[in-house]
Design a protein around this nucleic acid. Structure first.
Length: 321
DNA sequence: AACGTCGCCAACCGCCATGAC
DNA sequence: GGTCATGGCGGTTGGCGACGT
């Protein structure tokens, strides 16, 4: 087969940005033919354009077509693109068929310049849509992760703390070299006298590693009734964790802190299931803190624009570590 | 003000699939 | 069945404006 000769390689064919005059000539020609192009190869000559037919087609389909929607992507569109990309991969033209007035090129550009970066900063692999392994996340400093999350446009402090907890759980399972290991002192710097964080630093690796491993290993995702299984299992784990925290040698861990810490750890591992089991809101890490960690440029947890990202973060925290 | 860096996005490149001959 | 022309698609580039120093 081989690559076909293309008029683009002809000497003298105009390249580069389209002028208003070029656009007008192309639009008028296509409109004269009822919006239909029988041959892109013959179009430039017929329209009086010194352009490659391929370039004309691209200009029309990506920019001049009357049904193209310009302007920023909405949160719904962004959400839809991510979900479709998770199913279809880089099938931009297929994805574009699900978004009215958006071109494959525009979606591809938006993915590469916005969404991809957002996902990476959140520790989500933009190719597989799975959480990045701890060693990859470790390439970013904890501070960078926190500021990246903040840059998502108004993440709440509670959400940040869920993210912090997620990293904490990674430290439990991934060892001291992950970003989470560095995150803990970071958070401590931000909330130096916070008893919960200090307690977490001292007891989580020792007491909860096997507990969390158990949660992961016993999760029966394949079974049809896994939700109820996991829900009741999460409940059991909650009790076990409370008991173990109360028996911990570090005094600050026990008592009033044990219950909320256990709830947060279990709910961070299986947020949906805990909700289903207890029919109550997931207890966020924020609820553990008498004084929220001060995070400049944060906004309210109820910010609707964060809902998608919040869900995604919680979803990612529920994946096996 | 000048310069460097970065991000965005329109446009291009080159491969692939398909259909006509 | 082989070759060629064409359109379609995904990856990549480069110009340009915004921003920082």
């Amino acid at each position: 087969m081989g690559r076909s000769p293309c008029c683009c390689h002809d000497a003298g064919v105009k390249k580069g940005p389209w002028t208003e005059e070029d656009d007008r000539a192309l639009v008028e020609h296509i409109q004269r033919h009822g919006g239909h192009v029988s041959s892109w190869r013959n179009l430039p000559k017929a329209a009086g354009l010194n352009r490659c037919g391929k370039s004309c087609r691209l200009r029309w389909t990506n920019y001049l077509r009357p049904d193209i929607k310009r302007g920023n992507f909405t949160a719904d569109e962004e959400s839809l693109i991510i979900r479709l990309h998770a199913q279809l991969g880089n099938k931009w033209s297929t994805i574009a068929t699900h978004l009215d007035g958006r071109t494959d090129n525009e979606i591809k550009n938006y993915w590469n310049t916005h969404i991809r970066k957002k996902l990476l900063r959140m520790g989500v692999d933009p190719v597989t849509h799975q959480r990045l392994p701890p060693e990859d996340i470790a390439t970013a400093s904890p501070g960078a992760i926190l500021s990246a999350a903040a840059s998502l446009g108004g993440l709440s402090s509670a959400l940040m703390q869920v993210q912090a907890l997620q990293l904490l759980l990674q430290a439990v399972n991934g060892g001291g070299t992950s970003a989470a290991a560095g995150l803990i002192p970071s958070l401590n710097a931000a909330a130096a006298d916070n008893a919960i964080l200090n307690a977490s630093r001292s007891i989580v690796p020792n007491l909860l590693q096997d507990q969390m491993n158990l949660l992961v290993s016993q999760a029966s995702y394949g079974s049809p009734d896994h939700l109820s299984n996991i829900a009741s299992f999460a409940e059991q784990q909650h009790d076990v964790v409370v008991q173990r925290l109360n028996n911990a040698s570090a005094p600050v861990v026990g008592g009033a802190y044990a219950e909320p810490l256990a709830a947060a750890l279990v709910s961070a591992a299986y947020p949906q299931e805990v909700v289903a089991a207890a029919d109550r809101p997931v207890q966020g890490f924020a609820e553990l803190l008498s004084e929220p960690i001060e995070m400049p440029s944060m906004c309210s947890l109820e910010d609707d624009e964060d809902a998608f990202w919040k869900d995604m973060l919680l979803e990612s925290s529920s994946l096996p570590l």
